[in-house]
């Protein structure tokens, strides 16, 4: 069963300019993205910097209001909920922020930071608070004395663990993890990934895991959704990534990934052409400006999303040439 159903989600940010500070255009951060996340599943989202991953992640828990589209959580359309109706879900749906530097209030100790969320959602009784915090801190692999320190006293990796502890503090069921391990070195990354894996098992967590590291996504996630310029261009099971990948951008992602062995140095795939601007969405396929396989049709028309095989969806004219007629958009996106 799908815990989360996202349909035609769109986010356009207004851009202001000129002396009157009028809206002069829009950044098309997320464009008509649809997907499902099953209970207990981990969906990876990978894509270019600025392609809209964080915007999408924040919309999922309504930290950003979508321009249009719907988000259904456990059968309930949460895009229609008022602020107060959303409150109970604020506990269940959490986020680990991308930037461990700016997402922690510098004036609060770790203890007060955690206390805030725990007290607000009444997670434990007042007299159990300190034990609960101690346990949380231990669970994310920090020293007990971390509780009474301020964010600036920690290194980047340690701060990311504080971010995880804060997200876990309310005992959530669904977590958007926005680049939770990008700021970490590999040994801590392994610990944090193991930690998330354990928490997933222990609490049946469902995760949307945003990362630019395909290797981490391949290892950690069940399925991966590749985004480009606000569009979901390919979705497939992680285990099929190496053999089945079809979209030229996904292929470039694989080819640009350096291998962890100095004897296997290779020229990394460098995409030519201009990075498109979300201000001026190209007509046709969002990838035309950099695509090595581009044909005329790509420039004229937006490629439809085709479900090539159950669970493998691709939006590309060339990659889908072997599929006769684009099927109607699938009902279930699981």
């Amino acid at each position: 069963m799908s815990l989360l159903e996202v349909r035609h989600l769109v986010k356009h940010f207004p851009v202001r300019g000129g002396v009157l500070n009028r809206v002069v255009g829009h950044v098309h951060a997320v464009n008509d993205v649809s997907f499902d996340v099953r209970k207990g599943e981990t969906l990876g989202i990978v894509g270019e910097s600025g392609c809209g991953k964080s915007t999408l992640g924040k919309m999922l828990i309504r930290l950003i209001e979508p321009t249009s589209g719907t988000i259904t959580y456990e059968g309930q359309d949460i895009t229609a909920l008022s602020h107060s109706q959303m409150m109970p879900l604020r506990r269940t749906m959490q986020i680990i922020f991308q930037d461990p530097y700016s997402s922690l209030n510098p004036r609060l100790t770790v203890r007060s930071l955690l206390k805030e969320a725990i007290a607000f959602h009444r997670i434990v009784a007042r007299n159990e608070m300190d034990d609960y915090i101690t346990e949380l801190i231990r669970r994310v692999g920090l020293r007990a004395d971390a509780a009474d320190k301020f964010p600036h006293e920690f290194s980047g990796g340690q701060r990311q663990r504080i971010g995880i502890a804060r997200a876990l503090a309310t005992k959530p069921e669904f977590i958007v993890a926005d680049e939770p391990v990008s700021a970490l070195d590999v040994s801590i990354q392994a610990q944090v990934l193991n930690l998330l894996m354990d928490l997933k098992d222990e609490f049946g967590l469902t995760l949307v895991f945003i990362s630019h590291d395909l290797k981490v996504i391949q290892h950690f996630c069940d399925r991966v959704m590749v985004m480009y310029l606000g569009h979901a261009v390919e979705t497939l099971p992680c285990l099929e990534l190496d053999e089945q990948v079809r979209h030229p951008y996904s292929k470039a992602l694989l080819g640009a990934n350096p291998i962890d062995d100095p004897d296997q140095r290779r020229p990394l795939t460098i995409l030519q052409g201009d990075v498109p601007s979300p201000f001026h969405m190209p007509a046709g396929c969002p990838f035309i400006g950099r695509c090595p396989d581009v044909i005329d049709r790509c420039r004229a028309e937006m490629p439809p999303i085709v479900e090539r095989e159950p669970g493998h969806r691709v939006a590309c004219w060339v990659a889908n040439e072997d599929v006769a007629e684009p099927a109607a958009p699938a009902k279930s996106l699981g």
Binding site: S49, E179, H212, L253, A256, L268, T269
Partner: peptide
């Protein structure tokens, strides 16, 4: 660190 691999490849 904050970049996806195709941009990382460009920066490298």
């Amino acid at each position: 660190t904050a970049l996806d691999v195709t941009i990382q490849a460009q920066i490298l």
